[in-house]
Structures are given as C-alpha cells and as structure tokens.
Write a protein that binds this DNA or RNA. Structure first.
Length: 473
RNA sequence: GGCGACGUAGCCAAGUGGUUAAGGCGGGGGUCUGCAAAACCCCUAUUCGGCGGUUCGAAUCCGCCCGUCGCCUCCA
C-alpha cells in the first residue's frame, strides 16, 4: 500500500509502526449541527479504516471531540444553557448523523473536558523542557524552540508576514507562539491548573489525547486540509517537543474541502447543508458514492444534480447486488479479477474513484452473466463485500406513507376507508389488479395504474419472475 | 503579498512518459417488452486551458501566459 505523505510530497509505502495501525482523526468542535463537509471527511477516513481492516490490519481508531472553546461558550451563552449541555446534545446528534451515513464508530472518543489532567500534565512537561512559558495565567508554546516548525505546511517562520491579518498579542514572546492554556475570564467554564483556573488551548488536547490513547508515534493522522495550518503544524511542534519522538505522525492524510456555490462550505460563511438536510433528499449510499468518486485530496463541489446522478448510479449497483440467482447452470462468473483491480486501486493511496469504477464494471458483468444464465452468486457476494469496504450498504431505504396508496387502492375498490395496512400491501393489491387488466388486454387501464404509482415514485417492472416494484426518491 | 493545489467529453471524474484516454450521470441508436421499466449491446474527447520547449514518443516532464480554488484567522 502507498499513502501520499504531504511532508515529502510523495506517495510512500505504508509500513505501520506495530501490529496495530494507530489512527487518529480530528473530530468536531460541537457548537452546531454537522454539515456535509464534515460528513465528507469522516466518510473518507471511515473508508481508510475499513480498507485497512479489509487488508488484514488491526486498527485502533481514536477521534476526539473538542468540547470546549470560544465558540461553544458564545453559543451556549446565546442559548442560555451551560456549555456542556450544548456539546452533549450536539455530540449525540453527531453520532446519529454518522450512524445514518454508515460511518463506523471509532474505538475511543475522548473529549477535551474529560482529559484535563493529561492536558495539564502535557503543558507542564512542555514548560519544564523550556518549550512553553506562562504569562499571567496563560501558557504559550514557544514556536522558536520547535525543531523544524513549518515542515508540514511548508512555511518558514522568517518568511511569514506576522501580524498581517491577526493582531499581535503583546503578551507573547513571539507573535506566532500559540496558547496551550487560556486563563478563564469571569463566568467562563474553567478547570484548575498550576496557572490558575482556565481551559486548554485548541491544539493541545489533540496531542495529549493522541499520545495518551495511541502513544508517541501515530501511523495515520487525518483531518481536513484546513487543519494543516496552524492546527496540525502546532500538534507536531508540541507533541515532538513533549515526547522527543520524531515523527509524531508517520502518515498525514488531509482531505480536500467540500465546496458549495464556488466557496468552501463552512460554519463561518454560513453556506452549508447539514447532514440531516442531505439525508432527507438522498441516500447515504449516494452521498458516499459522490464523495468516493473523486480523489480524497481534491476539493469537491456539492450540487443536488451531482447527488441525483449518484443516486441513479448507486441504484444500478443495488440492483446488480440483488438480482435473483435462479438455478443457473454452467461456469459461475469469477469476480477475482475485479477484486484484484479493486485492491490495486485502493492500495494506490486510496484511489476510491478507480475502486468505484471497478464496482460498476463488476455490476455490468454480473448483469451480463445473469442474462446468459451463468451462476452469479459468488460474484454478487464479491460485489457486496467490496461495496462494504467503501461503506456502501446497497440497501434500499424505503419508508412509505401508506395514505396515498390507500387512496389509490380505494379508487379500484381494493381498500375501504379506515384501513391501515402498510403501503406495500396496497402496492401488491394494485399490481394484482393491473395483472387482471393486462390479462384482459386492457392496456390503457393497466397503464393507468402503473402511471399513478409512478407519480408516487413507485416504479413497476415486469420481469419473468413477475412484476416487481421499487421506490424512487 | 507568501505558500499550495487544480484546469481532461454536455456535466461529475480517474489516468501523471509509450497498446484503443477508466467509471458514473446525461444524450442517440438497437435487443427485449402489449407499451414501458430494468438489463444488455453499439455510438457520444483523434484529444487532455493556451503558447513554446525537452524527448524517438507528453494529457503526463520544464518554462511562460490565462483561468479557478484553498491556506496564511475559528474551521472536516
């Protein structure tokens, strides 16, 4: 396997440090609902994790919640609730959203507020080693003391136009020094520390938690490209300074950002689509396919048209994965070459676009073999297995409101008012009715039923095994 | 201003030195069907933003130009 390493700028062979792949993914700061940019990132790293497991690696996956920061405090104040109540609520929502997207849960989800002792210990260690200093209750990291600062984001301290966009804080020794610990202002949530009441700075909790749960050296550390600077650069600086182990991370992975209407989708710009809004219109499979049809490092532009196209595509895969096997005779379709292509693609820095293409080719081959009457059971199983590596369930998500179907069934005297069978019951009745009409060669009335159902998104297909229906979104 | 990406068919998107430039969506034609739908088959970029250069050979390497975007500030 090869993974692109942003520090060297090249794809490098993947060799984990031990038996277990140590993987850390930057989690969310829960001050608002998850949007599809987050979803994209977590889908990508979910696939990284699934693929590693598929390849036989044992993976320990840790993902944090930064559940204390300025925005959380501001938002909680706005809503008039304690910060922990806000974050608790949003973390629950996060899990619901990710479950709906079929994102596997990480092994551990540490929260900054529950790791304060370790964070304090880390800050203290950095002070003792001369990499950090305290100024009236705040503690800053001494960027100048960090070996190779800027190696991830390719920045040179001397060339950075300090203060060009941010006001320089006079308390710091050096403008780019960043806060490890922030003294609490009155009324803010705070924790005790050797420097008085306060809370952790943004970057330190990731280092403290990663080191605590995964050790001094991580195999994979993931996040959005927007985290490269300053977040990940600072994580490297403080982690390496604290543990002395270099590198802190063997393979950094950064996903390109999701764009909407030409701009990056972000909370601060307000141009976002939440995961819930997305899932009202499209299936999780369609979204995953959308994300996985391009390279994880490239930016991607969200559009409803694009998602709709993926919905059609995923439908093809679903059908191929579902088709009946019958009692086919002859040489079974061998899907081994497709599995190989899939593995080859994924081995090359998770080339999911090629992997997806392989799935479509296999689907076509399955359909063709079925038409020729060859056994396809094994091939279908392979399709499902490979789809699962990409987190695609290939299951239809049908939840129909029975009311319009009852109404239609009543027109044909197939139901009476007050009945409450599920929608599928009435669809079956209507299909039977249509059969009668077709047997009587009353095509126009038979077509009328089919058209009425189609208007509700229920599409009929006449096959040798009888009439089947499926629901379109 | 500094750093970094990217520009491939109607749309999305792989491919990064050498047989016919993946795949999806859309479009056209056909097979099947009462008609459809689904599925399958065929077609849909002689060409990879533009101009030069290196090379036996470039979408792929180099230079310049044009255009788009991200980061440099909270962000997945």
């Amino acid at each position: 396997m090869k993974i692109y390493n942003p520090i060297s700028g090249q794809k490098e062979g993947f060799v984990p440090g031990g038996d277990e792949v140590k993987m850390y993914v930057c989690g969310v700061t829960p001050y608002d609902s998850c949007h599809i940019g987050h979803a994209m990132s977590y889908v990508i790293f979910d696939v990284v994790r699934r693929y590693l497991e598929f390849r036989g690696y044992k993976v320990k996956h840790v993902q944090n919640f930064t559940d204390i920061d300025d925005k959380i405090i501001a938002r909680a104040n706005e809503l008039g609730i304690p910060a922990h109540e806000l974050t608790g609520r949003l973390i629950d929502e996060y899990f619901e959203d990710m479950d709906a997207l079929n994102v596997k849960r990480a092994d551990i989800y540490p929260r900054a507020t529950e790791e304060i002792p370790d964070i304090v210990r880390t800050v203290q260690g950095l002070i003792e080693k001369g990499h950090a200093y305290e100024v009236s209750g705040d503690v800053y990291f001494r960027v100048r003391s960090a070996e190779g600062y800027g190696k991830l984001s390719r920045r040179d301290l001397d060339e950075m136009s300090v203060g060009a966009r941010v006001e320089v804080d006079q308390a710091k020794e050096y403008p780019l020094d960043f806060a490890l610990w922030k003294a609490a202002k009155p009324g803010e949530p705070s924790w005790e520390s050797p420097w008085g009441g306060g809370r952790p700075g943004w970057h330190i909790e990731c280092s403290a938690m990663a080191i605590k749960y995964l050790g001094k050296t991580l195999d994979i550390h993931g996040g959005g490209q927007d985290l490269i600077f300053p977040h990940h650069e600072n994580e490297i600086a403080q982690s390496e300074a604290f543990t002395g182990a270099v590198p802190f991370v063997k393979y950094w992975m950064h996903n390109g950002l999701l764009q909407l209407d030409q701009d990056k989708m972000s909370k601060s710009l307000g141009n976002l689509v939440t995961v819930r809004e997305l899932l009202q219109r499209f299936s999780a499979d369609a979204f995953r396919l959308f994300v996985l049809s391009s390279y994880y490092r490239s930016p991607l532009s969200y559009s409803n048209e694009g998602l709709a196209a993926m919905e059609k595509g995923v439908d093809r895969l679903r059908r191929a994965a579902k088709v009946a096997d019958d009692e086919a005779q002859g040489h079974p379709l061998d899907a081994e070459s497709y599995r190989q292509r899939f593995v080859e693609a994924m081995d090359d820095d998770f080339n999911t676009a090629q992997a997806v293409a392989t799935l479509f080719d296999l689907a076509r081959e399955i359909n063709r073999a079925r038409e020729e009457g060859a056994p396809i059971r094994d091939a279908r199983r392979t399709l499902r297995e490979l789809a699962d590596v990409l987190g695609l369930t290939l299951e239809e998500e049908v939840h129909l409101d029975a009311a319009p179907y009852i109404k239609l069934a009543m027109e044909y005297e197939l139901a009476s008012a007050g009945e409450e069978q599920p929608a599928s019951y009435y669809i079956d009745r209507l299909i039977e009715k249509r059969h009668e009409l077709r047997r009587a060669r009353d095509w126009s009335n038979a077509d009328k039923i089919r058209n009425s159902l189609a208007e509700m998104g229920t599409m009929l297909e006449d096959t040798p095994q009888g009439t089947k229906w499926r629901q379109e979104r």
